[in-house]
Design a protein around this nucleic acid. Structure first.
Lengths: 301, 301
DNA sequence: ACGTCCTGTTTGTCTAGGACAAATCGAACG
DNA sequence: CGTTCGATTTGTCCTAGACAAACAGGACGT
């Protein structure tokens, strides 16, 4: 593998660090220190891009950039420190042993993984499959990715294959028009869809009609879509990776855009530390989603 | 619907216009002219955001921003002018009539659309379904979206439902380990996956082993993934929406990262106007993809 | 010993205007 | 009618400064 150079736009794309941040770090911390081309524009060598991606990952784990950048290369050791709180607080699926599934992904055995998951689905039924297999597995993959034991492409493969399984299972059970009508989507810059699919599975099982719009809907379009589809509920998902600071303002704007009669529900890891807001329902777990659905039914009987 | 205000980051998210561009337009053309908050930061009212999104759409159609911004509001008429060249050059599926499918989407009848597509799939078989139904339908939806007769959320619903159908069909035919091994993915910022799924369907039908990694893989990770999966071919997809200017540099960087033995194939609407490069195979249509695959087989027999 | 408030530091994002190269347009020319 | 060349348009990059939100850690009170 040779070492190409990346301009600042390419680094932003690849690392997720904004141009502003890249320039600011250079000014403040003296890292990264890119070369310059003939026009005086930054050119980042591949190894710095790699280091930046690593730093970004550790930041998402809760570390602070100032410290990370100061650390020389022994920070590779810092890969291990998973957040102790998380691994305790997250239910690990208890009776279910997921290590074999993780191992299959780690071996890049796509066919084997698909087969194993199909078996589980058949054995557990969709609801328990989602709650006891997919959900904890997603958390474990997330942790593995955070502490560096999973490569990016391994995580991508896992996501892609799991998406297929869930969609397939959902397709098998969608029926006629039912209530409530739930519109599922995410805001721009939020590309994670697994949480949305899990929610859809639960809602569909409970007899709701789901309108899956995929990810990344502009706010004003979410409003139009909700009206056009005569939705009762708009369900959004925020992953832990989504910039937390933007969420409150964003929800408030969406709440304004949305007609009063339509409820706004939010789920996913990104809302865990969020304060409650008027007119917005926070749903921290899949169980709660079912409860909320039943409650909606009682209210609108 | 009330009128909330958006800060510059929210406008970038929702319109896809970078902060730099938004500020530059304000300086140069005097539009948009956002309010300012107490700190002197820009606050865009919702109607300006809507206008910006409209302008962006017309730009993607080939119009130039200077003219568009000068035009008052009668530009709404400018919605119609679809690019004449495109609608002529794109094969319209000939014998197949797709208007009923488009109508179902336009009526937001998800169930009806799914059913109609399932019927077509059963009648045509996967290969012809992809070539004669999905591919032309995607083009027509793209055009409809460009000339404003489709809303964003209608396009999203179409995409989501079609993705499900294709994935389901692909899942039904994947078998044991076969050659060549094709790794399918897209670069960061390229979220469109329909083209990738169509390609996967064709490759899988021809007996190749497909490794679907979803979209948005960082370049260096694509290299790692290709090695880890012992891929013979890396297949990328670029939509027409992807910033064309970035593509050549990007492909060159990827070519450097990738071991020589692994071929790099590119498809999708985004490569139509691209110049040929060493070590990179441009595949402008699904037919060509099959040809290339057979050619690979002859070479590596 | 534990929780809460306060203060200083860290960090990201915004602002301004200038510069330049790539893409595109339009006119003159063969 | 096609092609080349200069002018204009347009996006992206640059520097450097300011500020607010988030955070850490100490002082204080219970």
């Amino acid at each position: 593998m040779n070492t190409p150079s990346f301009n600042i736009a390419a680094v932003e794309r690849d690392t997720g660090l904004s141009k502003d941040v890249l320039r600011m770090w250079e000014r403040r911390y003296g890292f990264p220190v890119p070369e310059r081309d003939l026009n005086g524009e930054r050119l980042y060598p591949a190894d710095q891009v790699d280091r930046l991606r690593l730093i970004k990952r550790l930041m998402d784990q809760g570390h602070r950039p100032g410290k990370l950048i100061a650390t020389p290369a022994e920070e590779l050791t810092a890969l291990a420190p998973r957040r102790a709180r998380a691994s305790e607080s997250i239910p690990t699926g208890e009776g279910e042993d997921l290590t074999d599934l993780l191992a299959l992904i780690k071996q890049h055995d796509a066919a084997g993984y698909q087969q194993a998951m199909q078996q589980r689905l058949a054995r557990q039924g969709l609801q328990r499959f989602v709650q006891d297999t997919v959900s904890p597995l997603t958390h474990q993959v997330g942790e593995a990715w955070e502490d560096g034991s999973f490569e990016v492409f391994e995580e991508h493969l896992f996501t892609e294959l799991t998406k297929r399984l869930l969609r397939q299972a959902i397709a098998a059970l969608s029926g006629g028009p039912r209530r409530p009508r739930v519109l599922l989507t995410s805001v721009p810059d939020e590309t994670h869809i697994l949480g949305l699919l899990m929610a859809e599975a639960m809602f569909a099982l409970e007899g709701a009609e789901c309108i899956p719009l995929g990810t990344q809907m502009p706010l004003l379009e979410i409003g139009r879509a909700a009206e056009a589809h005569r939705a009762d509920i708009v369900a959004l998902s925020f992953s832990t990776a989504f910039p937390q600071r933007q969420i409150p303002a964003l929800l408030q704007q969406l709440r304004i855009v949305l007609p009063d009669g339509i409820e706004l529900w939010c789920g996913g890891g990104g809302i865990a530390r969020l304060a409650a807001q008027d007119g917005i329902r926070l749903i921290p777990s899949l169980d709660r989603a079912i409860d909320e659905l039943n409650e909606w039914r009682t209210t609108h009987a």
